[in-house]
Amino acid sequence: METPPTRSLTIGKTIWLGAAASAALIAALLSIRPAHAAIHHAALVIQHASGSVITRCVAFAEDQITGLQLVERSNVEYEAQGFGSVGSAMCQLDREPSTVPPGCFGSGPYWQYFHRRGATWQTSALGASSSALHDGDMDGWRYAVGANQAPSVVAFASVCGAHAPAPAATATPVLGPAQATPAPVGTPAPIPSPEAMVPSASPSPDAVLTSTGPPAQPPKPTAMAPWLAFGSMAILLLTLGAINLRRRGP
């Protein structure tokens, strides 16, 4: 008795597709990546209206953190306000101003946000919650009147000491902005990790090394696994497309 055409399976194609699907599944299972592969460091420079400068060195396990996370993990008191996709603005930092103006900004001085580019400060185009800091980056804040009032030039090494930027290209997943800490309204109460309690060998009296995140683990040799999973999926789909392309449309 002949099998109805709609039910008949092509054995060769089934085996082929099954093998490709199995390869994709195995690759997906292999792609369990190390969550934290290295410790990175970023520097924070805060200059008050009085001219006093405080610096912090923050260690983090992720590939990148936001400027707001840098401030939060430095344990400096702050209050920020979110402005949609542009990011968060800093209303109060290290108890300055003493009271937060209504609407975050007052008519006088305000906290200005900068990134370190080479030897100079560059005004940030985004708010603190939307900016990204990698290993060796430095953020600067200055409470001043008028635009482009950059903080004093401070060398990264003078803040983070001998913590040179670690080599990149790890398989650590990068957190996107939506996964970053949302713009907090009100004074947060950051919980320092045990590492943060350890005094650092900071070169300046104001500098503090704040380690955050879980302790570092040695990287596992599975960096190619995500690519393998993605490639297998793409090859599977292309093969499926080639099979369906040869078919006549209804």
Partner: peptide, 11 residues
């Protein structure tokens, strides 16, 4: 797409 490739098309 997978079912279409495994089952013959009944035009």
């Amino acid at each position: 797409a997978l079912t279409a490739s495994l089952l013959r098309v009944d035009h």
